[in-house]
Amino acid sequence: MEKLSEETLMIQCAEAIVEIKDGFVYKRRIEKRYRVKEIDERIRRERTKSEAKIISEARRKGVPTPIIFDITDYELVMERIEGDLAREVINDAISERIGEFVGILHKNSIIHSDLTTSNIIVSTDNIIYFIDFGLSFIESSTEAKGVDVHVFFQSLRGTHESYEQLKRSFIKGYRRTFPNASHVLKRVKEIERRGRYVERK
């Protein structure tokens, strides 16, 4: 992460450059030289479109996400959410509300795919926003939802001392909004035993 000035912030990710300036977030998917143009352009275009679609779909179902102002071939222009990363401010009450929102996403078969406390913002007016749907997809399987929840637990474990308590709060919220929660939580235990997904630093 590189801070250029008070107003502009640039973040380089594996597949995109995110620029924050003047209250807007510009996410541009960058060209990959290793793949042929036909694939590169198609994938960047498809993913940009699908990300925008899922962000809007999530908001329609009641999960706060940034408003999208513009979408071009490879770029999304979104609302900038002012606030703190959940990673910095999470407590039991916040974790429970995160659980409720993830429950809503899963009830609607929206898989975030990168649910970490760095991709959730608690805004200055105390709304919990979900950001970075870059890897998201629509799928109804228990496995996909289980992996989603597992990734979230891993991000808690890596960075928060009160991990167990935060996890319990999340589950409370998740069960409240998602009727199929028990199935998924059972699968999460199985996924943990496989030990497959690594902790995020």
Binding site: A14, E15, K32, Y34, R35, I39, R200, K201
Partner: peptide, 20 residues
């Protein structure tokens, strides 16, 4: 080849970014 190998390369790159 182009399609299958690009998929593999993409996931490898993402893993490298993820694990630093």
């Amino acid at each position: 080849q182009e399609t299958g190998f690009a998929m593999l390369t993409e996931v490898t790159e993402r893993a490298m970014a993820h694990c630093c």
